[in-house]
Amino acid sequence: MKAIYQYSGISTPIHKLDPRTKLVMTLCYLLVSFILPSPLRVGPAVIPVPFVMAMLIVLAIWAVLRVRPWDYMMLWVYLIPIVGGITFAHVFFLDGPPFARIPGIPFHHLSIRGFFFGLDIGFRIVAMGFAFVLFSMTTDPFHWGLAMFKAGVPYKGAFMFAFGMRFYPLLQEEYFVIRDALKARGSDLLTSMNPVKLMNGVAVSAIPLGLGALRRSQNIALAMELRGFSFPEETGVPRVLYRDVRMRRVDWIVVGAFVLMLLVSLVLRLTGTIQQAKF
């Protein structure tokens, strides 16, 4: 079973873009979510900007990759307490007009500004997470490594980075087997919601997972050497890459559009054309 972040291997216009284009797109998009004030008043409407931007990525994942939001339910399960915790903290620790007073407790100022601010930060984190998912699902990690190599990263470093992305799913698969093997021995350590038990489970599984990964990485390193991974360094014969990454016209257009979007948001924010909704 594929993990949510794994390269999908289908062909869409986003898949065909250069990895550097997608990186610029992602960074611009995330910066805009930070620059635009939130909640944003547009006419009579009040828009929670980071929430909307995070949901737009969810829709993009659905539309482009045909992966529905409920297909990655577990990711939501992990995100909800993070967003809730951040919001909860800001309700107490940020000044502002209180929306409730509870006599007798020290935190009597529950801040409505803190509530929205906390939600915004929470959803910016969600947007970052989903943007990474969209990026990794539409970008061949070796294409990405190639782009890094072109940007000056040494070949072995760039290749190992890409290979790491390819290797991670294997580790994850092994982790699932270990989890089930523990269940077969009557232990629910790796499925428990109790953090202490979970940590204990991680410690128990470290032996098979660590040794397995070590053995596998040794085998892979050997297999790489047998295919001449160190040949260029040992012989001085330069490596000739079969694939190439090149910024096409469409890449420049997309980069231009996203940079423009970033600049427009910046100008709107700095000139005060758009403002945060008053509480």
Partner: peptide, 13 residues
């Protein structure tokens, strides 16, 4: 009981 194919993923001690 279930014994997995790779014995190394199920030995913990």
């Amino acid at each position: 009981g279930y014994v997995f194919q790779n014995p190394e993923t199920q030995l913990f001690k």
